[in-house]
Amino acid sequence: MKINWFKYSAPMSFYPLAGKLIPLFWIAAIMLILGGLYWGFFKTADILNDQKQYYRIIYVHVASAWMAMWLYAVMVFWAMLGLIFNTRLSYMLASATAVTGTVMTIIALATGAIWGKTSWGTYWDWDPKLTTFLILLFVYIGYIALQSAIDDVRRSDKASALLALVGLALVPIIYYAVNCPDPTQCASLHQESSLKRVESNILIGMLVTTLGFWMYSFATTLMRARIIVLERERSTTWVSNLPEISLAETSNSKIEARTETRS
């Protein structure tokens, strides 16, 4: 079967499809996050390696940190697609992803700081991982700021897409900031991010919450993309014909219909 991918690159066909998918993503997100946290709080040991119960922050910290980096890659993907094919929807999805990415970065930094206080005795350290992650937050904010600073939509889309592309260099840097090949060259407080070091029981909770955070990201990104579509396509007939834009008040039209049948 041949699927016409470009069909859904039209905001007009994307809008109703996204509207149908959003509730499904919400259900999946809530179920996975609650399930993962339940597992993480009730089905796992109180101690991980040398860490006491505070290690449980791992479930939101790792999930949000992974999402922060993953969403950056997703944002760059849409921005690049926009630059190559010049499709309006790609740019809209890129800017919709940016805000959720920012939220995830803030959660990762905040929960990381709290975990750091318990585990390292300090909320913040200019460790390579933490520093590069802070820069990631600034790049996200810079992307959003640049986009809102330029009034012309097409120009702001292109300029911010280029900024996103340049910032992509950060993602491998964040990763290698802790997994550096030579441990004598980088003294990192932050643990190596290696899945092998995590107990399989804890890993289940971590992966399930991460999946939940991913579904959450889908839901909020699609919600935001739909708002952007409405704002940018407001003067088109298809937006004007949407049921949510209809001027007739449902209660009034019902009354009118009733009075008509009576007379």
Partner: peptide
């Protein structure tokens, strides 16, 4: 949480509030 409740619940609370 073995004395770490304030840390764990504030981390969970921040995430929940933002989400």
């Amino acid at each position: 949480m073995g004395g770490f409740g304030i840390f764990i619940w504030s981390a969970m609370g921040i995430a929940l509030a933002l989400m």
